[in-house]
């Protein structure tokens, strides 16, 4: 079967590109669309650095054949900072020293975004479980957990009514 045109909604924008058979969502984002925040780590689904949101839920994009998600909504780290301003999760990662080499950061932040979308007030254990598929070899994880809890706190303080109504 020849390459085919695949259409995705990426960060709210309709994008079309030519995909070779079996191309992963990760390769499509990085090589066809130039969105290089999601990284290729293990390509086995074990490290989580390629995590993006598919219809709002985190998936490791290295294990997704792009043809299988045609037409779906994809959110990457590039779509997080609205208007070029860091959001609560990103700024908490900076403030809490949750990033060192940065290779895991894109995946960690996308998992955190998905967690906070569903659970605005997560426990320490909720955060640990949420990032349990993401490997970080620098920080020892603790600063990342603290940053995600801090981001949740900032978001709750910013929009208490909105959170209460969820």
């Amino acid at each position: 079967m020849p390459s085919q045109i695949v259409s995705l909604v990426v960060n709210g924008e309709q994008r079309e590109f030519i995909a070779a058979p079996g191309a992963t969502l990760l390769a499509s984002l990085r090589e066809s669309l130039g969105l290089t925040a999601a990284k290729r780590g293990c390509a086995q689904g074990a490290c989580g650095t390629c995590t993006v949101l598919v219809d709002g839920r985190p998936e490791v994009s290295c294990l997704v054949a792009v043809e299988t998600v045609a037409g779906r909504s994809i959110r990457t780290l590039e779509g997080v900072a609205a208007g070029g301003e860091l959001d609560e999760v990103q700024s908490a990662f900076v403030d809490c020293f949750a990033t060192q080499c940065g290779f895991c950061t894109a995946g960690m932040i996308m998992v955190a975004e998905a967690l906070l979308d569903r659970n605005p007030d997560p426990s320490d254990e909720d955060v640990v479980e949420a990032i349990s598929g993401n490997v970080c070899r620098c920080t020892g994880y603790r600063p990342i957990v603290i940053a995600i809890l801090e981001a949740a706190r900032r978001r709750r303080e910013q929009a208490p009514q909105e959170v209460a109504s969820r």
Partner: peptide
């Protein structure tokens, strides 16, 4: 299910 995979992999 929680012992098998991360929430991310559980989505797949």
């Amino acid at each position: 299910l929680r012992t098998i995979a991360s929430p991310t992999i559980c989505n797949q």
